[in-house]
């Protein structure tokens, strides 16, 4: 295993597009070669070395490469996007599109992330210690093919549009969420441990949602069908089981309609 450490030296005037900050791009390269990798600031192509000091060489493959960014990346987008293996750790905040389209490996952001983290993710793990803004694990705007696999865990709260058009994988938000959860989803699991304002599972066809806090405004397209006990993220709770979205088309499996499930923690 090889660790490459990046230390931020300069705050970009615009936003730096760090699409080269992935184990895949660093693998097989020396520190000097890594510093020469491209990134955009506006329409200009610059080098990683203009914003970071690089120490340590990349491993032989992406899986052998760990990247540590020692500092704040609030103005660096696309960290770990499209990565397939290895790891990225940021000791600070990160900007938009962290882990977007990632296929494997692990990303750990110790601060907060901006919007679009883990969008259209296909595999791997994305862990955020702080809060996330909007569009966590959702589809790219306009696209009908959302997150397909992998796990996103946000230890803080998140904004709106969580898991839009989700097809698979798991999103866990440990605190509160604003609106629009699993809109248009056709699979996958979203777990929200705090409260949600509303619009949970709108036009959802298939998939599961767990809410351990309260939903302030329930959608009318959901119907309670019973009470179940289920294990979620290592702990057991009693849930009110809702199905929906009843206004949407639903497929059949073994002669039975398949609905999306909303498990809302039952009042004690």
């Amino acid at each position: 295993m090889a660790t490459v450490t990046l230390k931020p030296t300069k705050v970009p005037e615009l936003i730096f597009e760090g699409y080269s900050i992935t184990p895949d791009a660093f693998a097989g390269k020396t520190a000097a070669q890594i510093a020469a990798l491209p990134g955009h600031e506006g329409k200009f192509v610059l080098k990683l070395g203009e914003f970071f000091t690089v120490s340590g060489n990349g491993g032989e493959t992406a899986a052998d490469t760990d990247i540590v960014i020692d500092g704040d990346c609030s103005r660096v987008k696309y960290i770990g996007s499209k990565m397939t293996a290895g790891s990225v750790t940021v000791n600070g905040n990160a900007d938009m599109y962290v882990g977007g389209w990632m296929k494997g490996g692990k990303i750990h952001i110790k601060g907060n992330v901006d919007s679009f983290c883990g969008i259209q993710m296909e595999g791997g793990e994305l862990l955020v210690d702080g809060d996330a803004k909007n569009h966590v694990g959702c589809a790219y705007r306009g696209d009908w093919r959302g997150m397909k696999g992998g796990t996103i865990r946000i230890k803080g709260s998140a904004g709106n549009d969580i898991g839009t058009a989700m097809l698979g994988g798991t999103i866990i938000i440990e605190k509160d969420v604003f609106i629009h959860v699993s809109t248009h989803a056709e699979g996958g699991t979203v777990i929200i441990k705090g409260d949600v304002e509303g619009r949970v599972g709108g036009q959802m066809v298939k998939g599961d949602m767990y809410v351990l806090g309260k939903i302030k405004f329930m959608l009318p397209g959901y119907k309670k069908i019973g009470t179940v006990e289920k294990e979620v993220d290592g702990a057991k709770y009693t849930f009110d089981h809702y199905i929906g979205d009843l206004g949407e088309r639903h497929g059949k499996s073994k002669g039975q309609y398949v609905y999306a499930n909303l498990y809302l923690k039952a009042a004690a």
Binding site: H40, K43, A139, Y140
Partner: peptide, 14 residues
């Protein structure tokens, strides 16, 4: 207007 996602397939746009 309808397909902002189309630009994801553009490859190098700059």
């Amino acid at each position: 207007l309808m397909r902002p996602e189309d630009k994801l397939r553009a490859g190098v746009c700059r």
